[in-house]
Amino acid sequence: MPEMGFVQQLGIGALMTIKVAVLSYLLALAIGTAFALVTLRRRLVVGFIWQVYASIFTGVPSLLVAFLFFYAGSGIVASLASLVGLTVTVDISPFAAAVAALGMVYGAYLADLIRSAIQNVPPGQFEAAKVLLVPQPATWLLVILPQVLRLALPGMTNMWIVVMKDTALISLIGLKEIMAYAKLASGVTKEPFIYYVLASVFFLGMTWLTYFVSRRIESWSERGYKPVVKQEPAHAL
């Protein structure tokens, strides 16, 4: 039987996992959307910055990025600050390093996803909005975004699951999330199976919850489209 004290700790860890995953994903969405929008039109400087960013953060494993941020983060911030003439000393917490690493890595993936979704909105939609004199912000928000959402949702759902599962790796930089507590509990009780199974059940539960919610959102985003063949979302990785 699992001991209640350890189970309680797993619960605290699970909350931390959710917190890191949600914040990382929001950061990734922000970075992804920003890069998607600025790289829509091919401009030399922006394109170059994006190439460098994408090759670093899709090329280096997310765990390594987290290590770099955690161990070298304060150095990076200090040297960046000294460029503009400031002296800054910051301690990078495992939490901040984890969110920054996952957010920046998956932001690179989301940028490609969101950009291709925008490019797949028929150009006639932009033209119709233009000739109807609809202001640009309203066009993006009310005409383009709903259609982008519909196109990008399946990929975004998968990405969310990947981000959530990747938080398990981040325990290695000392973040007290569910994986760290499962490891601790199995070390103390010498019953690794129970606690790792509990942790697995948590991730499974989160994944199923995601599928349930995403199907709801997807069918909402598909309002107005003829029901095509209903496809189950493909499992992530």
Partner: peptide, 22 residues
Amino acid sequence: GFNLFPHMTVLANCTFALRLAL
């Protein structure tokens, strides 16, 4: 190609510009 907004009803398609542009 019509270029109607697919996620809006017929009525919403017609009122969209009236409400947002005018």
